[in-house]
Design a protein around this nucleic acid. Structure first.
Lengths: 201, 201
DNA sequence: TCCTATCTTGGCACAGAGTGTCAGGTTGGC
DNA sequence: GCCAACCTGACACTCTGTGCCAAGATAGGA
C-alpha cells in the first residue's frame, strides 16, 4: 500500500502493535485531553509496557498523528521532465493529488478524528507542523537533485509553498467535515491551488 | 521598539532577566549542543533559579528562539483597502517587508547565531515551526476581519503561504550568511516573492 | 527437528522537564 | 512609612524519555 512490507510474522506484529498504540492514544486523548493522558495510560490500554511505547513512538503526540507517509513517498519518487517553473509546480501538484486520492473514503473517519483533536489541542498542532518539516526536506532534496540549474532559494521556496498549501487544504477539508459537509480532499486541494494562482495574478 | 513598555523598575528588570536567560541559553547551546544542555545549567549561568527559568520561557528551546514579535505586530495592525487578491498580497508583502527592515544591521549577528543553531539542531527547527503557527493564526484573524467576503479557504491559504515565504526567505538569508555572503533580508524576501510569482505564471 | 543468531519485550533505574505551593523579599502607590 | 501586589527561590512531586540487561519469540540454516 505504502512502502515495502516484507510480510514476516515480525513485521505484521509490529504493524498491529503500532496501530493498537495509535488507537489507544487517539481514544484517550478524545476522552481526557492531551495533557491529562499519560504515556502509562496509553501503554496500559494498548497492552504493552511503558518502555515499549517509546520503541514505537518518540512522544505521545506522535502516537496520535501518523505522519504523511503517502505524500512523503510521492515526493521521494517524483518525476520531473523540465525546467519550466509552471511545469514543475504542475508536476508536484499531480503527485500530491495522487497521494491525496489514495486516502480511501473508509479512512475519512480516522482523518476526521485527528482533525477534531488538532482543533482542540494546540500542542498537537505544533507537533504536526514539526512533522511537516520532513515533507519539506524530502521535496527540497528531490527538487535539488532533479533541477540542478535552479537556485537553492527557489527550490526551498517551492518546497515550503507546496507543503503549506497541502496543510491548508487538509485543514479546510477538516473544517468543512466538522460542519458536516463531506467533500473530496482532492477537490479541496484543487481549489487551494486555484486560489494560489488567483493570488499572484 | 516593539510593543508598549511601561518603564517601571519591574518591567526593566524583567526584560534584562529575559535577555540574560536568552543569552545564556544561546551560548550553552553553541558550546554543548541542545540535548547536552540542561535548564539547570542555563539557569546557573543566567544567575537565576531553575524554577524562575520556567516563569520566563516554557522550554529551553523557546529560550533560544525569541519569536517573531515584529512580524506578529505587523500582521495584527495590517491595513487593507480592497478585495482584489493581488492587492491584498501586495499589502501583506509591504507589511512584511517593513517588519523585516526593522531588523537593524546590528542585530544581524544575533540572527546569524540563531540560524547556525537551527541548522545544527533539528529539534530547534520543530520548535520554531511550532512558533510560526502564531503568525499564521494572527494573519488569518486579521484577514478574516478585513475581508468578510473572502472564503475561509482562501484566507487560510494566504496566511499559510505568506508565513511559508517568510520562513523560506529567512532560511535562505541564513544560508548565504553562513557562506559569508552578507545581504539584506528584505532583498531576499523580495526575491522569494518574485519566485512565487514566477511559479504560477 | 533442532540450534543459534537476531529481534522484541518488560522491568529496573535514572536524569531531566515542567508544575503546584509557599514563605520571604522587593516594588509601587498611597 | 505602610500595605497590597508582584517576584523569587526552595522543596516536592509527576511525567517524559532513555540506557541497560535478562528472558522470550522468531527466522533460517544444518
Amino acid at each position: 500500500m505504502d512502502d515495502a512490507m516484507p510480510d514476516g510474522l515480525r513485521e505484521r506484529r509490529r504493524r498491529t502493535t503500532q496501530l493498537e498504540i495509535h488507537e489507544a492514544a487517539l481514544a484517550l486523548f478524545e476522552e481526557q485531553g492531551l495533557r491529562a493522558t499519560t504515556v502509562q495510560q496509553i501503554s496500559n490500554r494498548a497492552g504493552i509496557s511503558h518502555r515499549t511505547f517509546f520503541r514505537y513512538f518518540a512522544s505521545k503526540e506522535q502516537a496520535a498523528i501518523p505522519g504523511q507517509r503517502r505524500l512523503l513517498h510521492a515526493f521521494e519518487s517524483l518525476e520531473l521532465d523540465g525546467d519550466e517553473p509552471g511545469d514543475v509546480l504542475r508536476a508536484i501538484e499531480r503527485a500530491a493529488m495522487a497521494a491525496m486520492a489514495e486516502v480511501g473514503d473508509g479512512q475519512h473517519e480516522g482523518q476526521l478524528r485527528i482533525t477534531r483533536l488538532l482543533a482542540a489541542e494546540p500542542d498537537l498542532q505544533a507537533s504536526a507542523s514539526g512533522q511537516d518539516l520532513q515533507l519539506v526536506a524530502a521535496l527540497r532534496d528531490r527538487l535539488g537533485a532533479g533541477l540542478p540549474d535552479w537556485p537553492v532559494r527557489r527550490i526551498r521556496l517551492v518546497a515550503e509553498i507546496v507543503v503549506a498549501t497541502w496543510r491548508a487544504a487538509w485543514q479546510h477539508w477538516g473544517e468543512r467535515a466538522l460542519q458536516g459537509v463531506v467533500v473530496e480532499p482532492a477537490d479541496v486541494l484543487r481549489e487551494c491551488m486555484a486560489d494560489l494562482r488567483l493570488l499572484v495574478r
